[in-house]
Design a protein around this nucleic acid. Structure first.
Length: 473
RNA sequence: GCCCUGAUAGUGUAGUGGUCUAUCAUGAAGCGUUGUCGAUGCUUCGACGCGGAUUCGAAUUCCGCUCGGGGCGCCA
């Protein structure tokens, strides 16, 4: 199978049935005349018979060709077709002859095939392929990304992207049930909407503009406008020259913003959403996970299977100050106020496997727009913020927090951080006419998918990744 | 920005100065056998990134170039 059942797919000009439909429902279709089309995964048989293994988006099916029961030229043409050619066949559904079974072993369930009366090559594939689809040779990631349209024909890769679609669907589903509206913010912006990272400059007619690095400000403006609860799934662009398994220069961020809510409230939204995603995948998409695990088992050495363990709520809350203690107790010389690096996160993950929140970061480490209560201090008297991260193991999935809605505090924060409030009027002006308390977060979709699919690199779960050295395909 | 590392058939690899006329797998071409099924047997095809240096001799050592891979920081 390739994951989709195709049972709701209507016939098209090129096929009456999908392959998955016939493979899965063959008993009811025996003796039916059908037309199907797909990729020639294997063409076997050099003599008077020929086995054509076809693959489409719903599954695999064998087509059986006999020289004396069809046009001879057509037979020869199909028999000599290159692998991965697109072939349409017409014929009759029949039960496949059972394969030889050793004595004592159970008889496998009946399988079905098409006995071919006519066939057409819709598009011949060239040979050799830049990389094999079914070959058991390892192919390196760069080669695969250069030939992503072929890589995607491999069932476990195809499964990963079907899962990706499901994850986005389930995430949306959940937020909508909690009253969130989907929004879209501009990706062409005039200035930084969030401090920190470098932006990609672009030319916007006669003015300079940038690619958006975050929907942050626009989500907030939507909240100020009374949309109450919004989410956005969209690209973010960051001109950072990083080169790691978890960074890309263009990535899809799953963002929410919520009015009359604090950091604790939006953490709760997030863990409910993640639980819903995991639960839904476990209930509906185990077949896709199985396809990934089939591939993992074939590797040398075999990779352990990925499992979808629905996380229990609430996720652990490891406050920043506690996290620092954990790291110190692991023997690392780290001060309160220092950043928690990936290697440090390993130490926290040892105590809290799976998802865990890291709330209450020092205000000095968070952007000016993060909210703080003046009376919340760390052990050394350092000001705490209402900013948080969500980690899975060593990897940061989310960054979020309650936002500062008090315009006077906002301006004070800028001054405290040595920034000139005059440079941030594009931000602060929005807050001058009444701003409800609000909070939100941004979640890296690919990072979440890494966890779910067992991928070791975000590039695996992004169709056409953009990194420091890759802009094509 | 810092650090590490690499370039051998379409793909993935072996190879650390001399039977390398380059290994194995996969692939491709051809001929058989076969209601096959990770099909299979035989034959054939296909590669040392570019330039220079050392040497009797370089895939192998050195230098330059080009292109690539990975990690850190930062972040999602």
């Amino acid at each position: 199978m390739t994951g989709r059942d195709g049972s709701t797919w209507q016939p098209t000009a090129y096929r009456t049935h999908t392959l998955g439909e016939i493979a899965g429902n063959g008993a009811d279709l025996v003796d039916t005349d059908v037309t199907v089309a797909g990729y020639a995964e294997a063409v076997r048989g050099r003599g008077a018979i020929c086995f054509l293994m076809l693959r489409d988006g719903t599954g695999h099916l064998q087509a059986f060709l006999k020289k004396d029961s069809m046009d001879e030229d057509t037979f020869t043409e199909i028999q000599s077709a290159n692998r991965e050619s697109i072939i349409q066949v017409t014929g009759t559904v029949a039960q496949k002859r059972p394969s030889k079974v050793k004595e004592g072993e159970p008889t496998p369930p009946p399988e079905y095939e098409i006995q071919v009366s006519g066939a057409t090559i819709l598009a011949m594939a060239e040979a050799p392929m830049p990389m094999g689809v079914t070959d058991k040779v390892h192919v390196k990631l760069p080669t695969r990304l250069d030939n992503r349209h072929i890589d995607l024909r491999r069932s476990h890769i195809n499964a990963m992207f079907q899962i990706r679609s499901k994850v986005l669907q389930y995430g949306r589903e959940h937020l909508i049930t909690e009253g969130f509206n989907e929004m879209n913010s501009p990706k062409i912006i005039a200035s930084a909407s969030e401090g920190g990272t470098n932006l990609f400059p672009i030319k916007y007619f006669e003015t300079d503009a940038y690619l958006s690095q975050s929907p942050q400000l626009y989500k907030q403006l939507a909240i100020l406008g009374g949309l109450e609860r919004v989410f956005e799934v969209g690209p973010a662009f960051r001109a950072e020259e990083h080169d790691t398994y978890r960074h890309l220069n263009e990535f899809i961020s799953f963002d929410i913003e919520m009015a009359f809510a604090n950091d604790d409230d939006v953490m709760a939204v997030q863990e409910r959403m993640i639980q819903h995603i995991w639960k839904s995948v476990a209930e509906n998409d185990q077949n896709l996970i199985d396809m990934i695990n089939e591939w993992r088992a074939e590797q040398e050495p075999p990779l352990s299977p990925v499992t979808v363990e629905v996380p229990t709520l609430p996720f652990p809350r490891v406050e920043y100050s506690e996290a620092i203690e954990i790291i110190q107790n692991a023997g690392v010389n780290i001060e309160w106020g220092a950043d928690i690096e990936a290697q440090h996160a390993d130490m926290i993950a040892a105590k809290y496997p799976g998802f865990y929140f890291l709330p209450r970061w020092p205000m000095a480490m968070k952007p000016f727009y993060i909210y703080h209560n003046a009376d919340e201090k760390g052990p050394n008297g350092g000001q705490l913020s209402r900013g948080f991260d969500l980690n899975y193991g060593r990897d940061e999935m989310t960054s979020g927090g309650q936002r500062e809605h008090r315009v006077d505090v906002l301006i004070q924060n800028l001054e405290n951080m040595g920034l000139d409030p005059a440079d941030f009027t594009f931000y602060t002006d929005g807050f001058r006419f009444g701003a409800p308390p609000h909070a939100g977060w941004g979640l890296g979709v690919a990072r979440l998918l890494m966890v779910l699919t067992g991928a070791g690199n975000v590039r695996e779960v992004v169709l056409f990744p953009r990194d420091r050295s890759r802009v094509t395909p």
